[in-house]
Design a protein around this nucleic acid. Sequence first.
DNA 1: GTTAAAGCTTGCCCCTAGGGTAAGGTCAAT
DNA 2: ATTGACCTTACCCTAGGGGCAAGCTTTAAC
Lengths: 137, 137
Amino acid sequence: MPHLLTIGEAATASGLSAKMIRNYEQSGLLQKPARTDAGYRLYNQQQLQQLKFIQQARKLGFSLNEIRSLLQLWQNPERESRAVKQLAEQHLANIAEKIAELQNMQQLLQQLANSCNADSSPDCAILAALAPQAGTK
Amino acid sequence: MPHLLTIGEAATASGLSAKMIRNYEQSGLLQKPARTDAGYRLYNQQQLQQLKFIQQARKLGFSLNEIRSLLQLWQNPERESRAVKQLAEQHLANIAEKIAELQNMQQLLQQLANSCNADSSPDCAILAALAPQAGTK
DNA sequence: GTTAAAGCTTGCCCCTAGGGTAAGGTCAAT
DNA sequence: ATTGACCTTACCCTAGGGGCAAGCTTTAAC
């Protein structure tokens, strides 16, 4: 007895927004749901599971393209776990790269901020570092 | 004797792209440059300094809105270094927050990846964690 | 002096991953 | 019957660009 949900109910149940669900459908992540005579989308339990799957994957930072692949793997009983792990490792590498970039910015900017007096004088190491060759003129 | 540069030369000299320079002008970060009779943009040395300033600030991850504020402070001789530092501290807080989010994802996903065998079997802890209530059915 | 290449102009569409809003149709309760 | 909540599509907005097209200008070679 499949309980059917409108998009708002599916959104609440999955933790997504109705807008995001329509967006995912448009992007081809989801099969087109059934519609009432009036055109309202109706989601069954299996589709709700997919929405929850997407929500969890978003929480881990996967992009929509990566989630598309993950969904295909999930729904393929002949998948090889190798493929799943490879996707995850690639994403982990991207995450590590972003963290490194941010930490680099953090370190540089923190040093500059530490050298800025934060008083009523106009002199500040931060602006001095941004300004080319130490002179506004 | 101000040496004037076309947009391509200014791009090379500043490390930005011509496209980005036009974009910053459109966004109101830069005053509109002079033009030749034919409509070519011409940048003087002071404007080149501003372009380099923007490029450095981008490297530190400041948003265009933040750079707008930084430029105004830079050009205001009566600025208080307090204001500059406050902007930097706010940006540092944003950076720290992003790093924390990414590290959280990293930790969760790394644990899942470690539990995935990466062989030809379909079973993988990553998919199991994404799938709601431990069952595809 | 002419011509071809490189550079410039504006305008448009694309990307991620959505948010916001508007105009209008539908459903349920009062 | 009306009201309010919900649904539909379509469009513009964000940040920070990439890329292309059509057309004009400048420069350099021949």
